[in-house]
């Protein structure tokens, strides 16, 4: 009985409620499709931004370790075309737990240290394509 009343209450939403819910969902889906499309574009570079300024652009193809020491300390590793934040001295550690990124438009953000590492489109892959 109690479960039924909960369901009925949820269904007692007004037309305006449902319209609002549908528009929220549509906005979410459109955004999601946009992100999927953006991810499918070719990627070749890794861009590192600190406090909104670009501090370095690296090739996704070359393995390397990048040490950052600005607002806080972060270490980024590029290996086998994948980027991972391996160390950060921030309190929440969301960026270190973030999975590795490799597709265009993906990014790892360390909010407390204001570090954004993102994969962007680049010339490298196209050049490889030509030489091959």
């Amino acid at each position: 009985m109690k479960k039924d009343t909960v369901v009925i209450e949820a269904l007692q939403m007004t037309k305006a409620d449902l319209l609002l819910a549908v528009s929220f969902l549509l906005a979410g889906i459109i955004c999601f499709v946009g992100i999927i499309y953006f991810n499918s574009l070719p990627a070749g570079q890794v861009q590192v931004k600190v406090e909104g300024k670009v501090v370095g652009i690296y090739s996704l193809e070359k393995d390397r370790k990048i040490e950052l020491d600005y607002k806080g300390e972060n270490s980024v590793v590029i290996k086998d075309g994948k980027v991972k934040m391996v160390y950060a001295n921030c309190p929440d550690q969301y960026c270190v737990k973030h999975r590795e990124i490799s597709r265009n438009g993906e990014s790892i953000i360390c909010l407390p240290n204001q570090v954004v590492v993102s994969v962007t489109g680049g010339e490298e892959q196209d050049a490889d394509g030509v030489t091959n």
Binding site: L25, I29, E106, S107
Partner: peptide, 23 residues
Amino acid sequence: VAAAVVETFQILYYFPVLLVAGM
């Protein structure tokens, strides 16, 4: 606010997830 703090729009990647979670 997060987008303004890191001065990047990359953070809007979280938008679809946070929208559905908020709903």
